[in-house]
């Protein structure tokens, strides 16, 4: 350290900070912050015949209380919660189990399994939707014959076309596609657990289930929490799979309508329905708020209580 610096009252302006942070910040502001704020502002306006005027919260009130809109809105929201619940109850536990199995040192070819299970995540949703529609198709699909060959043929149905099963089927397809992500994240955390802790538990007489339950699970909880929040955000932004398989009208009888498809119809319009930018912005704002509230609740009630361990 040069002592003369301490006497120098004028510190040079930290240009390097501007230099390194500037470009990123600029891109973030232009492409993320500004559109977001603009959407929030747009949702407070109403557009008619090319003239837009300020209406305050009217769009939101219409959306939540007016019969023409609220029915579709609540339907999409509740479908979205079902969609999320299925991911939490199926995708993440399966991801966890796969990660534990993969990290077992006795497993051979674990690299191959890892790649294969992660593969669907890298495919385009449109391809996934197309392939699964073919697999499940009552006309050309192989799933019916497959079920017959294992003696369950009578349970086969046109799942994607029935109001009672379409959303669940789509959720399972989505689970199949994205199960690789929780698996990878949890797997990486499991690999980080030092062997000596596990060895110590074995020396203490714990069997492998006890080792998992008392040693490994507490150590990967922060990752599971993070996976949950990622699932939440991804599910409430979900749109592509439904659009690729069922179209923007999310049939039958809107049983597969999610917030994303509802937004699409509102903002861009559909067939003879003219799109409305301001109403669409209101739906987008509500989606943003729902996700924001969800993430905040998570931060306050769960994230703060999770203990992190340093090895």
């Amino acid at each position: 350290m040069n002592p003369s610096n301490q006497h120098d009252e004028k510190k040079p302006f930290p240009w390097h900070l501007v230099f390194f942070l500037g470009p990123g910040l600029l891109i973030y502001v232009i492409f993320s912050v500004y559109p977001l704020l603009d959407t929030l502002v747009l949702s407070l306006y109403n557009e008619q015949q090319g003239q837009s005027h300020f209406v305050g919260l009217q769009n939101f009130i219409t959306l939540i209380t007016d019969d023409a809109w609220s029915h579709a809105f609540w339907n999409a929201l509740s479908n979205n919660f079902t969609f999320f619940a299925i991911h939490m109850l199926v995708q993440n536990p399966i991801g966890l189990i796969l990660a534990v199995l993969l990290s077992s040192p006795k497993l051979r070819l674990s690299g191959t399994y890892r790649t294969l299970i992660f593969m669907p995540t890298m495919l385009s949703v449109v391809i996934i939707g197309f392939v699964w529609q073919l697999l499940l198709s009552p006309i050309w699909g192989i799933s019916e014959n497959f079920l017959y060959s294992i003696g369950l043929g009578e349970y086969f149905d046109a799942w994607l076309g029935k109001e009672s099963s379409a959303l669940i089927t789509l959720a399972f397809i989505s689970v199949w596609q994205f199960v690789g992500i929780p698996m990878m994240l949890i797997y990486a955390t499991l690999l980080n657990i030092p062997d000596d802790i596990v060895d110590a538990s074995v020396v203490d007489g714990a069997n492998s289930f006890q080792t998992f339950w008392h040693i490994k699970l507490p150590l990967i909880l922060p990752t599971i929490a993070m996976v949950s929040i990622l699932t939440f955000v991804a599910n409430f932004n979900a749109f592509e799979l439904i659009y690729a398989v069922k179209g923007a009208l999310a049939g039958p009888n809107f049983s597969t309508d999610l917030m994303g498809t509802f937004f699409y119809r509102t903002f861009f319009g559909f067939q003879l329905q003219q799109g409305s930018a301001s109403m669409g912005a209101a739906v987008a704002t509500l989606m943003f708020l729902i996700i924001l509230v969800g993430v905040m609740l998570f931060l306050f009630f769960i994230q703060r209580r999770i203990q992190r361990f340093q090895f």
Binding site: A68, G251, N253, Q271, Q273, Q274
Partner: peptide, 26 residues
């Protein structure tokens, strides 16, 4: 097509939905 699909709910969308449901038997 003419005039009747200008409002909310959109008649054309509704016709799609209810006609499909009638054929499905739901």
């Amino acid at each position: 097509y003419q005039i009747l699909s200008r409002g909310t709910p959109n008649l054309e969308n509704q016709l799609w939905n209810v006609s499909a449901q009638v054929i499905n038997g739901t």
